[in-house]
Amino acid sequence: METSPSISAIEKEIIGDFSMFETWEEKYEYIIDLGKKLAPLNETFKTDDYKIKGCQSSVWIHSFEKDGRVFFEGDSDAVIVKGLVSLMIHVLSGHTPQEIIDAPLGFIDEVGLSSHLAQTRSNGLRAMIKQMKLDATAFKLKG
């Protein structure tokens, strides 16, 4: 676990992956594929308690702590959003609460997904990140 890559290293890796896509179709096919491959979330967590408010689609995020690190799992009923959930889990899961809280997440802009952060989208990426950081803060306080 000590040797796992940092958040910024993972962000760099994602920017590298996305730089290979020449068209928007390739980019979204990749995100859709991530969504389809995301490990299913246990049905017991698909409740209002884990649902992120303010999304046009349903998004659920469950977090837990192990050995001082926070882990995330999640799901959505929309596959592109599920792909974004997968991407965020890949970046943030398995790090310390402080690392998660401090993560600037500049890759979202660099890979051309910042439109998903627009307030009008209500599609959850912004709300998703906020929830993940809130969960990390809660674990830090419990610390």
Binding site: A78, V81, N123
Partner: peptide
């Protein structure tokens, strides 16, 4: 098909 997925792809 979730309508939101459709909207994102149509917008593109």
């Amino acid at each position: 098909v979730h309508p939101q997925d459709l909207a994102i792809l149509l917008d593109n």
